[in-house]
């Protein structure tokens, strides 16, 4: 410290930074009159404080966005901002009691990589899932109205899509299409159906043609408006 005020100066700065004292406090004003650099130092430290807080708040926000998706459970739809859609599109493990079959929820490359790394640490003792639930769920949010989409591969090879909607009185049109081909030539289509009919099953022949990356598109019609929702299929 450079002013002869010594520890008092530090204490004053600490008090100012922690909000215990204010710059317009007369006692603080007296210090500032004796040491104008105090204000400069306070402003520099406040700027640094804001800089750290910006980093911290960004981390908190990103973590919270990821954890919000992580915490989802079937039948407990949670509205998330549209920018979290990428995370939501990652297959999510099913909750307790879900049936297990052979499809992959977690990317095999990821688990192989993890397993290889883990083997260095705990050779032979590490567990990694090699079978995952066939049922998975996903959700998309557009304009604050959610349709929660589910995809389920049945034992006979057919695929059942179901969705739940917050749109009252909506009817739905659905299609499965290859993004490389476009929506103009869908693999399969379901015309707009009855109100609240929220299920569609692709018979095994068609279901067998679905490839990873194909998309399920559900368009909800309600109140003269339409809203599309999509799910990337596995």
């Amino acid at each position: 410290m450079n002013d002869g005020i010594g520890p008092d100066r530090q204490q004053l700065l600490a008090d100012l930074l922690c909000g215990d004292r204010r710059l317009d406090d007369p006692a603080v004003g007296a210090y500032l009159a004796k040491d104008p650099s105090l204000r400069v130092e306070f402003e520099e430290l406040s700027a640094l404080e804001a800089r750290i807080e910006a980093v911290a708040s960004r981390e908190r926000e990103l973590l919270s966005a990821a954890l919000a998706v992580e915490d989802r459970r079937p039948n407990e739809p949670k509205l998330v901002p549209a920018e979290r859609a990428d995370a939501a599109s990652i297959p999510h493990r099913a909750g307790r009691g879900s049936k297990v079959s052979g499809s992959k929820v977690w990317g095999p490359k990821l688990w192989l990589g993890l397993a290889a790394a883990a083997a260095v640490v705990v050779a032979g003792s590490l567990w990694w899932p090699d079978a995952v639930p066939s049922h998975r769920d996903d959700q998309r949010v557009l304009s604050g109205q959610a349709v929660v989409l589910h995809e389920e591969v049945l034992r006979d090879g057919s695929r059942r899509f179901t969705w739940e909607s917050t749109l009252r009185g909506a009817t739905f049109e659905a299609m499965v299409y290859d993004p490389a081909v476009g929506q103009g030539k869908p693999l399969a289509e379901r015309e707009a159906g009855l109100e609240n009919q929220t299920e569609w099953t692709l018979e095994p022949g068609l279901a067998g043609q679905v490839r990873t990356g194909f998309r399920l598109r559900v368009v909800a019609f309600a109140g003269g408006r339409e809203k599309p929702f999509e799910l990337s299929l596995q």
Binding site: L62, L63, A65, A66, L67, V69, E70, E83, R84, A85, D86, A87, S89, I90, R93, W106, G107, L110, L114, A118, V121, V122, S125, L126, W127, W128
Partner: peptide
């Protein structure tokens, strides 16, 4: 082993973290 299992389960958040950061 039990600790490894717990740790593994908790680290299943990683792909989602990457997805959110990517988005």
């Amino acid at each position: 082993p039990r600790a490894v299992e717990q740790f593994t389960a908790r680290m299943k958040c990683l792909p989602r973290y990457v997805a959110v950061c990517n988005a």
